[in-house]
Design a protein around this nucleic acid. Structure first.
Length: 262
DNA sequence: CCTATAGCCTGACGGC
DNA sequence: TGCCGTCAGGCTATAG
């Protein structure tokens, strides 16, 4: 669920539902997700305030609180998402944090596996620096030149480089496969061996893939026929014909089409 | 410095 | 049915 397009949809969801609603109560149902803060600090920082805007950087979502310039940071790990609902008994399973508003609606941070984080911060740029996050993959200011520098020209496999959040932020296991497929590049290629033309194709396809996914609300069932994402763990067919193959790259299962990716 | 690997957390699934 | 190993769209810390 939670790569750049998915988190962008979470942001749109937050904006459309929980923004500008007065927070009456915050329940921390699992402390494990809280980083560098305590339930008490989070509760008191939010009580009586509202989320007044949001931003996304890579796979992180930041919600600005209408008090002292604080932000709540959400990271969704592999299984996290937000759910806005009316009746408290509709509370989703695995709700870890529950924000309740004075309009009697609730916003749940749901995560089956506790691999994400929720944090209270004063400074968004400071947070990004501390985590050494690279530029957001869809930041308009993230030029081809910067992209090439981010990827590097070493011995790292190109798929690992795309997924390295310190190089560029937002691309994970699923979308790196799609970008490499669309660019016609084998995931095991070393970044140092890519031609300028191949780097250019990667940059262009990264934009096209991520934007298309956001446009389709990060729902693979609506993705173009030419995408491989709907086929992985499905019919295992390449859109252009042939079998989808899988292998491990830096410990992650990767799907690719040998016929098209060189 | 660089890259690759194990560990974290919880549940689903397949094989025996 | 029950148990076990493996795997899952995350990140960090550690090992080479």
């Amino acid at each position: 669920m939670p790569e750049l397009p998915d988190v962008e949809i979470q942001k749109e969801y937050l904006d459309a539902t929980a923004l500008h609603k007065r927070i009456a109560k915050t329940q921390i149902l699992s402390r494990d997700l809280l980083k560098e803060t305590t339930p008490r600090k989070l509760r008191t920082a939010l009580k009586g305030h509202e989320f007044k805007s949001s931003r996304r950087h890579g796979k992180y979502l930041f919600a600005r609180v209408s008090s002292e310039g604080k932000w709540v940071v959400f990271h969704f790990g592999m299984t996290g998402f937000l759910k806005y609902f009316r009746q408290e008994d509709e509370k989703p399973e695995y709700t870890r944090i529950l924000f309740s508003f004075t309009n009697e609606y609730h916003l749940a941070y749901v995560a089956q596996r506790k691999l994400g984080l929720i944090q209270l911060i004063n400074d968004m740029e400071g947070f990004i620096e501390k985590h050494k996050l690279g530029p957001d993959a869809l930041d308009p200011g993230f030029t081809f030149k910067q992209f090439r520098e981010s990827l590097g020209d070493g011995r790292a496999m190109v798929k690992s480089a795309l997924m390295n959040q310190k190089a560029l932020a937002g691309v994970g296991n699923i979308y790196s496969d799609e970008i490499l497929y669309q660019a016609g590049i084998d995931p095991r290629r070393r970044t140092g061996d890519l031609s300028g033309e191949e780097q250019k194709r990667l940059y262009r396809q990264m934009h096209r893939v991520l934007k298309t996914a956001i446009d389709k609300r990060a729902d693979p069932s609506g993705f173009p026929r030419s995408f491989i994402i709907p086929h992985r763990r499905g019919d295992n067919k390449c859109p252009g014909g042939g079998e989808l193959k899988s292998l491990k790259v830096s410990g992650r299962t990767s799907f690719y089409c040998p016929g098209r990716q060189k």
